[in-house]
């Protein structure tokens, strides 16, 4: 929970509207029943629990929401939306908030998820499929986490789980065009 008291300047402002437009989720429908936070696998470590995040969105707390660690720690397990009596799709909300957080330069400093996502998607763009060894190597180089899990690669090699050569699907130029058009919103 955020320690500082939040001053309520109005309910249902621009943030709730933008989240709804981007994700289709309806944060204003939340009744604060807490079913989401009761079932959320990362609620116990979160700076904002799911029901608190939704309330912050209702209260137009853009800074707090976009800078929260929770939007990056959400595992997209879909438990919240499955159990929500009001069908507030928090998992989809978090996807929209991640995009908004990056665009606003507010990404929580502790998370490396955006780096992982970028490396992952650039491999998919170039190869068509994930090259796991390349993914892990690039991620480690980009984040400087070279020694973390140093025991895992030899184990995976010995178990035949880490092919040295990556896959490659034809149509790279077409895929690059796809990625470019998606980034432009599919209007071109």
């Amino acid at each position: 929970m955020i320690a500082a008291t939040i001053e309520i300047g109005g309910v249902g402002g621009a943030l709730a509207s933008e989240v709804k437009a981007r994700s289709g989720a309806s944060p204003m429908s939340c009744l604060q029943c807490l079913k989401c936070s009761s079932g959320c696998p990362v609620a116990s470590r979160a700076d904002l629990k799911p029901h608190e995040l939704v309330r912050m969105v209702q209260m137009d707390q853009r800074e707090v929401v976009l800078a929260s660690r929770f939007i990056w720690e959400c595992t997209s397990c879909q438990t919240c939306i499955t159990r929500c009596p009001q069908q507030v799709n928090i998992a989809a909300m978090n996807d929209a908030l991640r995009v908004m957080s990056r665009a606003a330069g507010k990404v929580a400093p502790e998370t490396t998820v955006p780096v992982f996502n970028d490396v992952f998607l650039s491999i998919v763009r170039n190869r068509g499929r994930v090259y796991e060894l390349g993914l892990m190597a690039s991620y480690k180089l980009r984040t400087g986490r070279l020694l973390e899990d140093a025991d895992k690669a030899p184990m995976m090699f010995s178990k035949g789980k880490l092919p040295l050569l990556g896959p490659r699907v034809r149509g790279r130029d077409q895929r690059r065009e796809m990625f470019r058009r998606a980034a432009e919103g599919g209007n071109k």
Partner: peptide, 20 residues
């Protein structure tokens, strides 16, 4: 010629790409 489904990386980065 199937390609990657996009996984969490796509839906956490670009929802349109995640469907495309």
């Amino acid at each position: 010629d199937w390609i990657c489904c996009g996984s969490t990386a796509a839906h956490g980065t670009d929802p349109l790409l995640a469907d495309a």
